[in-house]
């Protein structure tokens, strides 16, 4: 098992233009992700934002709002329209009072591939081996209180939907 990298794939049923807009337009990205960005995504830009909660799920939004005080910033790397978007951030940088700015970042890459019935989206996040071990251990402790709640809410939500 790699300790450095995560990869996810999801087939989205919609035109590539629609998927691309949901990723590359900072307002749209923010709506599903749960962040309000201060500016557009352009190559090399440092885009700051605030965690405001997702627009697509009220329970998750409520849980996300506990991180409303946390500064959120990404640095855009590449924008290759309808094909690839990549940026860097400090993973799980949610602990108050810690200056993450001098620490290594991880690289997030979204890749779009057209399919007959939609768009195959691949997301990779890599560079975790460079993240201080103490930080990784701490994040797990925080999860016990924070993201554990998110997962429970999600289970509840999916249970109701089923």
């Amino acid at each position: 098992m790699s300790t450095d990298r995560i990869e996810k794939k999801i087939l989205l049923r919609g035109p590539v233009k629609r998927v691309w807009q949901a990723l590359s337009d900072s307002n749209e990205f923010g709506r599903w992700f749960g962040v309000q960005f201060e500016g557009p995504f352009t190559p090399g830009a440092h885009v700051r934002g605030r965690i405001v909660g997702t627009a697509v799920d009220a329970d998750v939004a409520k849980a996300q709002k506990q991180y409303a005080h946390v500064p959120f910033e990404i640095t855009i790397e590449r924008i290759d329209p309808e094909r690839l978007l990549s940026f860097r951030w400090h993973p799980h940088a949610v602990e108050p009072g810690i200056d993450y700015s001098q620490e290594p970042t991880t690289l997030i890459v979204f890749t779009l591939e057209p399919r007959k019935d939609g768009v195959l989206l691949t997301v990779t996040e890599s560079g975790f081996d460079q993240i201080p071990l103490a930080r990784r251990a701490k994040a797990f402790e925080a999860n016990e209180q924070g993201w554990g709640v998110v997962v429970k809410l999600l289970e509840k939500h999916l249970g109701e939907a089923a």
């Binding site: 098992m1 300790t3 995560i6 996810k8 999801i10 989205l12 049923r13 919609g14 629609r18 998927v19 949901a22 749209e28 709506r31 599903w32 992700f33 749960g34 997702t54 627009a55 697509v56 799920d57 998750v60 993973p91 799980h92 989206l121 997301v123 996040e125 975790f128 071990l133 990784r136 251990a137 994040a139 797990f140 999860n143 993201w147 998110v150 997962v151 999600l154």
Partner: peptide
């Protein structure tokens, strides 16, 4: 370290579910 990656992995699963709803 494994739990940390599981956590980040779960967060991406959740985020992508939200993206799917959005789209």
């Amino acid at each position: 370290i494994r739990s940390y990656l599981d956590l980040i992995s779960q967060q991406w699963d959740d985020a992508l579910k939200r993206l799917r709803s959005f789209i």
